Simulated scan of single mutants.
Amino acid sequence: MVDDAVPEDLKDAVGQLREAIQKLGNDEGSEAFGNPTYDKYGRTRLMGAANRLIAALQVGLSGDVLLAERFDKGIIRAFARVVGDLAFGDIWSESKAFEVAYEIELAINQQTSKLIRPDSVYRENPSRYKELLRIDHEAESAATGIKQEQHLLSQVARVDEIVNDVEQAAGVVADSELAKAFSDHERAEAESANRFRIGAIAILMGIVAFSTYTAIEIPATLGSSLAHVGIAFSGLAAFAYLSRESAQHRKVARWSAMMAVQLKTLSAFSAGLSEGQRENLRSQFGQRVFSEMPTSGVDTPSNGADFSPTIQAVVDILKSARAN
């Protein structure tokens, strides 16, 4: 409800300001305002400026003349419209709230400061002069406070950006170190796979050479044949084991190489994502890296199927050598 001590042509503007003040007060802590700390300061300053403007408009100067008559009424209506847009709008602008609050306080201070000069005629009315002086000091102090708060909050935002940059840089370094560890692991596993492969090939060649030599140089008897078959299959078992170990280490090496590549490209891939999306991606990737098993020691059916043609080929070679 608008007080009667307001010019008729400003009652709508004052009513609009009062509705905006009520809406801003009811919205305190609303999730729609994003950052609660920053929004609270912007909202409080805007409410204070609007309340002070209404109080200033109702101050009587002399007779029926109000301080409202000294204001540009178009500016008052513009203030009321902007404050209403901020209060009832879907998107809250903290910076605009501070800016509008500052302009309102500045406009009040500019009008009241003219009336409290040493030669002011209003000194003759102590109560009226005291009221003007109070509003002037409050508006001046509020304007100064708004600028200080804006500066402090901008510094806080800057510190948050620096912390975020440092955290991202630390994450990049950590990713790089982890990628290096995976690369080193990949090289070690590849070397182990090559050693087992060389061992398997050496055993296979030894079996073939031994079987060929005994088939040609040693007369075939039942006992010697059984001994040769036992030696051959013992060698083939060792060959199968070394081959399986080589395949296992090579599989781990491939997995480590893939992890290293993904870690090296993770930062570049997530650069365009929001902070929340980056954290979610990094969390999912970490769970995969530290919980995923690169190999399974129980997939022997596929390994056995891979080695069966090789074993059959060796058996055929032995049969051919015996026939000759």
Rank of each mutant, 00 (worst) to 15 (best):
D316H: 13
I75C: 09
A193L: 04
A170G: 10
F210I: 10
F196L: 06
A101W: 01
S256L: 05
R52N: 11
I54W: 02
I91K: 15
V14F: 03
L318E: 04
S267Q: 08
L242F: 07
D39L: 01
L318R: 04
S127N: 12
L106I: 11
N125P: 03
A169D: 15
I104S: 02
S176F: 09
N280T: 13
E177P: 02
P219V: 12
D85F: 06
R158N: 13
E99T: 08
A50I: 01
I201P: 00
D160Q: 15
G206P: 01
Q16P: 02
A170E: 13
A49R: 01
A142G: 04
S291Y: 11
A268T: 12
T44P: 03
N35T: 11
A107Q: 02
A240Y: 03
A80C: 09
G286D: 15
S291Q: 14
S30G: 11
L61F: 05
E94P: 04
E279Q: 14
M293H: 15
A260F: 06
L263R: 03
R134V: 05
V163F: 09
L222G: 14
L281C: 08
E8P: 02
R187S: 12
V121E: 09
M47P: 00
S113Q: 05
M47S: 07
L133K: 05
S176K: 09
I146V: 08
R250F: 06
E149V: 09
R45H: 12
R187H: 13
E167S: 09
A20N: 04
V314F: 09
F33A: 07
K114G: 05
G145E: 02
T221G: 14
H249Q: 09
V65N: 12
K264Q: 14
L153F: 07
G29M: 10
R128D: 04
A97E: 01
S246D: 02
G235N: 05
A55P: 02
G199R: 02
E189R: 06
K251S: 14
S243I: 00
R81Y: 10
Q277H: 11
L46P: 01
Y213D: 08
S95E: 15
